[in-house]
Nucleic acid binder design. Structure first.
Length: 425
RNA sequence: GUGGGCGUAGCGUAGUGGUUAACGCGUCAGAUUGUGGCUCUGAAGAUCGAGGGUUCAAAUCCCUCCGUCCACCCCA
């Protein structure tokens, strides 16, 4: 029995009718990046697994449960990139970008891989727009990457967005806070949901965003990190929010915002559709990661960045009613009535294409009616018809498919004839 | 990783135990023989997601698997 192949679970084909959306997003990202002085970088699709174990944190879900890890034939432990930031930081160090003018602004769009259970807006292979500013501790650049992502989404026609903003302070004060948080929860430990009991050990910050009923009664009384930031982090945070207000960006402080990667400090943010209840609605998120470069063996280097999922952006565009037309049609569709015309037709098509006209030839074996139908559904502006008479005369009947009179034109003049009519590029 | 809904031609659907599984869109072809769109006619296209079971009889009932969607978890 023959096997029916399907795209692997959690992956998808991007068919021609969706390509305009992808193009819109990638072009807009490149353009917004340019406006902010970013340069494009491309890094490999796989890296040493250790890069993410060290960089993203080996107890994070992304690394521990979701990473596609494999050994190559030389025994090297590799991983399909689950997230972009460590790869870019690796490249920053590997190519000595510390000696470029600082800060270094880099962006990319590339596929990410996570072995996760797929649902709408969540895929095993997804594509991220990734922007990073490396080498600046200025709160203004925190605000700038938020503004950049905001502007990108706005340009793509997505409205009704909210920035969720938080600060998770620097590592030292955060450790002290986590201790206070655990002290608070410890007496209630056996009343918490099983999930939260695990969180208590693994990731106490997450205790606060539990949705489990059993955990809710304890939430209000718990200390909030954002309320007791260190003076430095508080000042930084205030500067970020002030800049966002200047930029007229709608943000709300989310005291419980936690991100899934270990390297963040101070600013963390997400951009979500304000009117969407879905769990997978977050279109982008990021934050500051001042410790990461050093963790990867470089000098202490402050940095901020974000990742944004293109599939989710497109979902949002569609939810916002953004409709993009299919790609441009043909300029000419050549209809020929006899296989004897094949040679002439093939050469003509080449000439038209060299003149910059998108040209397609009807199927040799098919009837004229059939080829005219194809010409019509191709969206071509002109049908170029070569029957017995035209073949003998070295000309063709050029018929505008949008309406208008058909004219007989010598083969050598067809390109100019079409280029002279309106609608040519 | 946990729980639930769904799975019938390329797409959207009808059919809930009983003759060769129906319709719309799409595809291909034809409508007195050299001209598209509209209309009409016809054809191709489905081992009813896969495998197993119950039954004289299964798209329809049961089990397993796969896929998809939703929630949890997590994240973009």
């Amino acid at each position: 029995m023959t096997q029916r192949f399907q795209a692997p679970r959690g992956t998808q084909d991007v068919l021609p009718d969706m390509q305009p959306y992808w193009q819109a997003v990638t072009q807009a990202a490149a353009e917004i990046g340019r406006l902010h002085g970013f340069q494009r970088i491309d890094t490999p699709i796989f890296e040493l697994a250790a890069l993410f174990e060290k960089g993203s944190g080996d107890t994070t879900d992304v690394v521990e449960k979701e990473m596609y890890v494999f050994q190559d034939r030389g025994g090297e432990e590799l991983a399909l990139t689950p997230e972009g930031t460590p790869a870019i930081c690796r490249a920053y160090l590997e190519h000595g970008m510390a000696s470029w003018p600082q800060p270094v602004r880099l962006f990319t769009t590339k596929p990410m891989f996570r072995y996760d259970r797929p649902q709408k807006g969540r895929y095993r292979q997804h594509t991220q727009v990734d922007c990073e500013i490396i080498g600046s501790a200025d709160p203004l650049v925190d605000a700038e990457v938020i503004e950049l992502l905001w502007g990108l989404l706005e340009r793509l026609g997505i409205g009704n967005l909210t920035v969720r903003l938080g600060s998770i302070d620097d590592p030292e004060p955060r450790r002290a806070y986590v201790e206070r948080l655990k002290e608070y929860y410890r007496p209630y430990l056996d009343q918490l949901s099983p999930d939260s009991q695990r969180r208590f050990e693994r990731n106490p910050l997450r205790l606060l965003d539990s949705k489990d009923e059993r955990d809710l009664p304890f939430k209000d009384g718990a200390p909030k990190l954002i309320d007791e930031l260190s003076p430095e982090a508080q000042e930084h945070h205030d500067a970020v929010t002030e800049a966002l207000r200047e930029a007229r960006i709608d943000y709300e402080i989310d005291p419980l915002l936690v991100r899934g990667l270990d390297y963040y400090n101070r600013t963390v943010f997400e951009i979500v559709p304000a009117d969407d209840e879905r769990a997978q609605g977050t279109v982008g998120g990021g934050g500051r990661y001042d410790g990461l470069i050093e963790l990867l063996g470089g000098p202490p280097t402050p940095a901020v960045g974000f990742g944004s999922g293109i599939e989710r952006i497109i979902l949002e565009m569609q939810r916002n009613g953004v409709e993009l037309p299919a790609g441009e049609g043909l300029d000419a569709f050549i209809v020929h009535m006899t296989p004897a015309a094949r040679g002439v037709v093939f050469r003509l098509a080449g000439n038209l294409r060299r003149a910059g006209l998108a040209t397609q030839i009807g199927e040799s074996g098919r009837s004229m009616k059939s080829q005219m139908r194809s010409a019509n559904s191709s969206g071509a502006r002109f049908a170029v018809i070569i029957g017995e008479d035209e073949l003998a005369a070295g000309s063709a009947a050029v018929k505008p498919l949008g309406g208008g009179d058909q004219e007989t034109v010598p083969l050598d003049d067809i390109a100019t004839h079409i280029l002279e009519r309106p609608g040519s590029q």
